[in-house]
Simulated assay, not measured.
Amino acid sequence: MTDNLQILTATGAELERHVPALAELRISVFREFPYLYDGDADYEARYLETYRQARGSIVVIVLDGERVVGASTALPMAEETEEVKAPFLDHGYDPERIFYLGESVLLPAYRGRGLGVRFFAERERHAQALCHEQGYAFDWYAFCAVQRDSADPRRPSDYAPLDRFWEKRGYQRHPELRTSFSWKELGEAEESEKPMLFWLKPAGQSQSD
């Protein structure tokens, strides 16, 4: 249930007024395991500018009153970086036919209300609209997740991987599709590469309950 929360979708210039709050939200949530991200607002503003400018992008935003408490991003993979596209090209996929789901972030107090399911539904609905209204043709939805050792001492005792949640949304892990992203981790002096693994779902396949 979303209670009295407001869910809106922002594209292009509509996104600009939310950038400072989105940057703050991303820095807060990604400090948690497994990302352990030591972020800064300037980098986040530059990152979010990609979604403001990219053709076909979307940001789903959750508001509690005027406060941004959650967000989820997506865009056609053709608009993404080489780090994202390279493993797909190497395995015979066409990035032009893949809709890429970026990240979902939600403050802890708002979890367990169905918003994670809503994030996937809204982004997939946007991809379908791009196909129907703007001539895109997506065969796949895709996202990636950081890989951490199950014995990592920084892993909280109550940490629950999201694999089962993603599987219920219709996504499957593809171990052959791997890349790496660089960011500055808590405790690091500078950025280092982190291993990322992709999950895929055929476009048009519905979510389970």
Rank of each mutant, 00 (worst) to 15 (best):
E96N: 13
R123N: 03
A160H: 08
Y37Q: 04
P34K: 15
T179V: 00
E16L: 11
V105F: 09
S206H: 14
G204C: 03
W166V: 09
R148G: 11
V117P: 07
S104C: 11
L8V: 15
E66P: 08
S72P: 00
C144M: 08
W183V: 11
R123V: 06
A151C: 00
Q207H: 10
A71M: 13
P20W: 01
L48W: 09
A189Y: 00
L200P: 05
A10S: 05
S157A: 10
L5D: 03
E83D: 02
C131T: 15
A145G: 15
Q147W: 08
L197E: 10
L115Y: 06
P20A: 07
A10R: 05
C144P: 00
A13Q: 11
R46T: 15
G102I: 13
H174M: 09
E103Q: 13
K201E: 02
W166R: 09
E24A: 13
E49P: 03
T9Y: 01
Y100H: 13
G170C: 07
S57A: 09
G56Y: 00
N4P: 12
L162V: 14
A129P: 06
S57M: 01
G102E: 10
Y43R: 15
A41W: 12
I7N: 04
H174W: 07
R123Q: 04
P161Y: 00
L25T: 00
P95Y: 01
P202D: 02
E124P: 03
G39I: 11
E49R: 10
V69S: 05
F165D: 01
R97L: 04
G92V: 08
Q205Y: 04
E82W: 01
A109I: 07
L15K: 14
A86H: 10
R155V: 13
A54T: 15
G39M: 14
E80V: 08
I7R: 01
A109F: 04
A142K: 00
T9P: 04
Y47I: 14
F120S: 02
S28Q: 14
R125H: 10
E190V: 09
W183E: 09
V117E: 11
R169E: 01
R178Y: 05
L106P: 07
L48T: 15
F165I: 13
P156D: 02
T179E: 04
Q172M: 05
G56K: 04
D209T: 15
P95A: 05
A189G: 11
L36W: 03
W199R: 09
I7M: 03
G187K: 00
D158T: 12
R155M: 12
R178H: 06
A13M: 09
A142W: 01
Q128T: 12
E133P: 06
T50R: 07
R164H: 14
A78G: 05
F198N: 06
A86R: 14
Q134Y: 05
A109H: 06
E185M: 01
F198R: 05
Y43L: 11
